[in-house]
């Protein structure tokens, strides 16, 4: 079986002044896969994300996103908010970006802004309490409730997001991204700062998202136990270059990958070696 690609990145290059952060990167993520983007610190992983989600305009290259209905979007041509709105690419951030003063539920309802905005007749209808808007809001709350259950946050729905524990905030950010009904979910280090039990739960959640929601996942992660366990496909970056690309098993034995990691701090090498079973 070889499913069709959902995201094709071709010759992506990003320069900041003289610094080349991504150099001619090409890779493909397949529909229904969990694709992991790994590499040492400073390899350019988050920059790739920022290009895909429209926050940076790449210096060169093409990023083509395919929807299940066959439509295509060239992401490099879309403004940041349109990537989420039209191409339906959702993301989380390395340093969690919630709306801390708003409640958990409000965070999830804001994520459904575009749907609700249309239902409220772009505010004019909603101002005078149209029934259509109330129904749409009920649906939005139901969707929020669904994701709160999945992420085990139901009891905290009316607490402010800033009051959540770190692991809960990570889960809320994923739930919020899922409330936009994405076809591609980009997660920037979702397991960072989580303990072993929480990482396990995260793995289960990501698998659930992939199988039950037809959402493909693109993942940046340092935690090799997460990467090796759940990824279908791994892309390894080093200094903006792609140095390897393949299944977890293939990546595990790739000498170039081990060398790249050997180039960084000892601690990380030992950790990686232990995790990949060297």
């Amino acid at each position: 079986m070889s499913p069709e690609p959902i995201l094709e990145v071709e010759h992506l290059t990003m320069r900041f002044g003289g610094l080349v952060a991504i150099d001619d990167l090409s890779f493909t993520a397949k529909r229904g896969d969990i694709t992991a983007l790994i590499g040492p610190n400073g390899a350019g992983k988050t920059t790739v994300f920022n290009c895909i989600t429209g926050f940076y305009k790449p210096s060169a290259g093409m990023m083509r996103l395919a929807h299940p209905d066959g439509r295509f979007y060239l992401l490099e041509r879309l403004l940041d908010f349109r990537v989420a709105q039209q191409a339906r690419v959702a993301r989380t951030f390395q340093n969690i970006r919630l709306f801390p003063a708003m409640t958990v539920l409000e965070n999830l309802v804001v994520a459904q802004h575009n749907v609700l905005m249309a239902a409220s007749g772009f505010t004019f209808g909603g101002l005078f309490g149209l029934g259509r808007y109330r129904a749409a809001e009920r649906t939005a709350v139901d969707k929020a409730r669904y994701w709160l259950e999945r992420t085990n946050l139901l009891g905290r729905a009316d607490d402010s997001a800033g009051a959540l524990a770190y692991g809960e905030q990570r889960r809320l950010e994923i739930a919020r991204a899922m409330c936009t009904d994405p076809v591609l979910l980009c997660l920037d280090e979702p397991a960072a700062g989580l303990n072993a039990r929480e990482s396990g739960e995260l793995n289960a959640l990501l698998r659930f998202i992939r199988t039950d929601h037809a959402t493909s996942i693109l993942l940046i992660e340092h935690d090799m136990s997460v990467v090796m366990e759940i990824s279908d496909h791994i892309v390894v970056l080093d200094h903006g270059f792609k140095i390897a690309d393949g299944t977890p098993a293939a990546i595990r034995d790739d000498p170039k990958v081990i060398a790249a990691y050997l180039g960084v701090e000892d601690e990380e090498v030992i950790k990686v070696e232990a995790e990949v079973g060297l």
Binding site: F16, G17, T46, N50, F55, Y56, F93
Partner: peptide, 8 residues
Amino acid sequence: GRPEVEKV
């Protein structure tokens, strides 16, 4: 001035 890159 130098162009400012938004920190995401």
